[in-house]
Design a binder for these strands. Structure first.
Lengths: 334, 334
DNA sequence: TTGAAAGCGCTAACAT
DNA sequence: ATGTTAGCGCTTTCAA
């Protein structure tokens, strides 16, 4: 019982037309008589013919498939972007190969290499930083790349982001306005540019505007996950900080619970603002006040840009900045 | 700047060998003189040649790519399985196409169709139930399918699961033993077999053993997400239930918070046991007592089975049942 | 509106 | 150990 034993030839023979005509019908080419079309369609259905995408890709040099590089599927933030990407891809009839990069610089480049060898028509890249190896792949590749939720300090790659600097700046200013003199900045590894070159900058900006000194002891960095945040709570208590800006919700939940379990009352004794407003932010108790990001849209817009590039349309804007916001919950006194 | 400018021909010409030799080198065939091999490798590197996986797939009828159908990438449970799948796939040098099915029966079949048209060498299917359309695709396909965290009441498809009936049975018995007379069973749609035919059965079993009557009013079902659970809390309060078994952590977190926000103290006035022990279970306050499942392994083992089937090895066991457990936390009195 | 034929880049016999 | 030669199943000119 072979399945793909049914080829375009079989359909052609059975329908008494040439394979070219079958191809036209399958591809919705208008130059086919209605009658012929119907006959071919009947045969296709009867034989259970399914076009071989691999052969099609080889012949047409288009696979209608795009690659999506994601650091980790279990990361709420990127998973949400992936949904946006997926929906828009669906809309434009592109298929997606979702590839985990594990956030390891070396693996990322290899993952991209795999994607390109599969002849994807384009790639959406997500990550906390762009390694040199990845950058090289992007410029060398002959298919378009779009960055989603991922910054490129050189600004050469089309990208969709929010203004991370302002977002953190505003949140920090909010805490300052609430009277805090010592605010901690808690982020993932500072080797990730998005932390060191953007978010930390926003934090410093706010400090500068308020005329406060920047105290490196208040800058804490660790992994992005819950456990890392939880463990970090002890260190936080050892600083003079009375409030914190945390760059990921999982970390923030960890810090919050670590603090609470150590007897520190949030927000009474310590205020926290987190960064992504993912579903976690409303699940913790107290709920987390948060910067809000249009995560789904970040992905959706990136995918839309990619479709345009793949169709060789001009891009009006190469670096799209989507609006962010802020939502007050219970981890701040408000 | 053309796409796959550098082909195997270019390498062959430049290295002064035949394309077959280049192919041998690329595929690690032993029948190549060391010297020739080195020369070819040098040229490959110099020209930046990257084998075209599409052409390779067409010629060899193998793509070393497998399809993974996931209901929703943002679902913690399945995302965790996906990690297990990904790691093992990596290990065996298979690539993965992760396809979102949105849990819609119609879309699932279409997604599988896409995957098959791409000539994947195998498929891992995850979902809360198997629609007839999906079942049909599976039996008709000529590539192996393995179910991960997904039950097949007909038992014909190879699968990896835990014993959902026993897991829920035991958890329910635990609540009964703690003195509860009215225990609510909270699940996703009962149209999903895993709920109606397995988990609910476990619940009923425990009731029967204890000599309790089954009260349909205590069986509540809604969406798997946090919001659905949160909203359900009101309904829960209107039943006579003093404890509940919840089949997903997100729902459980919702029920817990909904109850807490309504002034019901957990676990003092109401006990909850959840089902997956995903990271959410330790993030909520109180933390959720939970059935434990080896999620990562569920995916990993499924992928390992699939590799065997793709290599045409015999499967010792077609339906693998992995052990489950239980972890006591603070949503039960213990 | 339809058909014929030439590839797309590679693998896999089969030769040598 | 290496080369030659058919295809793999389809798209795409180019003719008719």
């Amino acid at each position: 019982m072979d399945k793909q034993t049914v080829t375009i030839y079989d359909v052609a023979r059975e329908a008494k037309v040439s394979m070219a005509t079958v191809s036209r019908v399958v591809n919705g080419n208008a130059n086919v008589k209605q009658e012929t079309k119907e006959k071919v369609e009947e045969v296709i259905k009867r034989l259970g013919y399914r076009p071989n995408a691999v052969a099609r890709g080889l012949a047409s040099r288009r696979t209608t498939t795009i690659g999506v590089v994601i650091p980790d599927v279990t990361d709420d933030y990127f998973a949400e972007l992936a949904r946006g990407i997926d929906d828009v891809a669906q809309m434009y009839h592109y298929h997606i190969i979702l590839a985990n990069s594990d956030e390891a610089g070396t693996k990322e480049a290899q993952v991209i290499d795999n994607l390109l060898s599969k002849q994807v028509d384009g790639v959406i890249f997500m990550g906390n930083m762009i390694s040199d190896a990845v950058r090289e792949e992007m410029v060398r590749a002959d298919v378009p790349f779009v960055l989603a939720g991922t910054v490129d300090r050189t600004g050469v790659q089309p990208s969709v982001n929010i203004d991370y600097v302002s977002a953190i700046d505003e949140a920090t200013a909010r805490l300052i306005k609430a009277g805090h003199k010592n605010i901690s900045f808690i982020s993932g590894p500072l080797t990730d540019e998005i932390n060191s070159e953007y978010k930390l900058m926003g934090y410093k900006n706010a400090l500068t505007v308020a005329g406060y000194d920047y105290d490196p002891a208040l800058v804490l960095s660790t992994g992005y996950d819950y456990q890392s945040g939880y463990k970090l709570a002890d260190q936080v208590r050892n600083t003079s900080a009375t409030a914190a800006i945390v760059v990921s919700d999982e970390m923030a939940a960890g810090v919050l619970n670590g603090l609470t379990d150590a007897g520190v009352r949030v927000p009474e004794e310590f205020e926290i603002i987190t960064n992504n407003d993912s579903k976690l932010a409303t699940i913790t108790r107290p709920q987390l006040s948060s910067i809000t990001q249009p995560m789904y849209d970040l992905g959706a817009v990136a995918m839309r840009m990619l479709t345009k590039m793949m169709e060789r349309e001009e891009l009006a804007v190469k670096s799209v900045i989507l609006p962010h916001g802020y939502v007050e919950r219970d981890s701040t006194k408000g």
